[in-house]
Design a binder for these strands. Structure first.
Lengths: 152, 152
DNA sequence: TCTTGATCTCAAGTTAACTTGAGATTGTAG
DNA sequence: CTACAATCTCAAGTTAACTTGAGATCAAGA
C-alpha cells in the first residue's frame, strides 16, 4: 500500500540470509513471484521476506521445497498476505510438524524395544511397519533386524 | 561360528529389502565390510542383515549415511556384534533421536507463537535462533519473518 | 555521462544417495 | 561340462537444492 513496497532481490537476500541465487531458484520453482522493472530486474513485495523466511524455517524442519510449495499455495500470490492467510497456513503447517514428531516418536519407541533389548529374534518387531510411510516403491526391509528365516 | 555364517549380497538384499547396488554402495562408503571368495564375490556375515536394517531405519529417521556411519563405527567390523555392542549403539542412537525430537518440538512451539499469532512485528521472535544448529556457513535469516528494518 | 556495483540469463558444476547400463566373470543346477 | 542366473567393475545418469561462472545489461551516484 505505502511507498517502499517493492524491494530488490538483494534486499530480500540480505533480510533473510538466503543467497540471491537461492531466491532466484525459489522463484523458478514457483515458491515466489516477482514483478519486473522495465529493464528486467526482479522486484519483490516486502512480504516476500516473510515468505522466504517461512521457506527457510520449513526446510530446517525437514520439509522439501515440494512440500513447502504445497503450503505456500495457500497464500495469495503476488499480493501481501493478510494475518488470516498466515494463520491458515500456519495451522496446516503445524499439523504436518505434529505428524513428523509423532512418526519420530513411534520409531524411537520401537527402536528401544527392538534393538535396545538385544533380543535377536525380532519375531514381534514392529520397527519396520509398512504402514508408517507411503512406501514409495519397492519392498523395504522384510525381516527387519532379524536374521532368522533361512530361506533354503 | 556355526555354519551358514556367510551369505551373498543377494541374500542381504532380499532380507533387508535394500537394492544390491545400495549394499555395494554402503560397503564403498565404509558402512559395511565384506569378505571375498577366491572369485571376487562378496560374502557378508548374517549379522550384516541387522546392520543394513539399522542403516535403513536410521535413514527413515532422517539421519545421513555420514551420521549413521559414526554410530556404526561403534560396532566391531567384520565380526558379529554382541548383544552388548548393539545395546551401546542403540543408546547413542536413541540420544540422537531425542535431540531431533526436542529440536522439532522447540521449533514447533516457536512457529506457533510467531507465525501463528499473526503479529507482524516479530521483535521478540525466537524462531530463528542461531544457536539451534551449528550454522554450517554463512548467515541464515536475519530479521526472520519480520519486515521491519528499512536499511537505508 | 561515466563508472561501478547489482542484476540478468543460461549452462554447467556440486553433494548425497543411489540407480542404470555395459561388458566381463563367477557359481551352481543339471 | 554347460547353461544361465548372480556377481563384479566402472562409468555415467538421476533428483534435490543450490552454487558458480561467463558474458551482458541495469541502476544510481559523482
Amino acid at each position: 500500500m505505502a511507498a517502499g513496497q517493492w524491494i530488490t532481490i538483494g534486499e530480500v537476500a540480505w533480510r533473510t540470509g538466503a543467497a540471491v541465487s537461492a531466491i532466484r531458484f525459489y522463484e523458478e520453482k514457483g515458491l515466489l513471484t516477482a514483478r519486473r522493472t522495465a529493464g528486467g530486474t526482479r522486484m519483490f513485495l516486502r512480504s516476500d521476506i516473510r515468505r522466504v523466511s517461512f521457506i527457510l524455517i520449513a526446510q530446517r524442519l525437514g520439509f522439501s521445497l515440494e512440500e513447502i510449495g504445497v503450503h505456500l499455495r495457500g497464500l495469495p500470490d503476488g499480493r501481501t498476505p493478510t494475518k488470516k492467510d498466515w494463520e491458515k497456513i500456519s495451522r496446516d503447517f503445524r499439523a504436518s510438524i505434529d505428524e513428523r514428531i509423532a512418526a519420530l516418536t513411534t520409531l524411537r519407541t520401537r527402536l528401544t524395544s527392538c534393538i535396545g533389548c538385544g533380543c535377536l529374534s525380532l519375531k514381534t518387531c514392529g520397527l519396520y511397519n509398512p504402514e508408517d510411510e507411503a512406501k514409495e516403491k519397492g519392498a523395504g526391509p522384510r525381516y527387519l533386524l532379524g536374521d532368522k528365516p533361512s530361506r533354503a
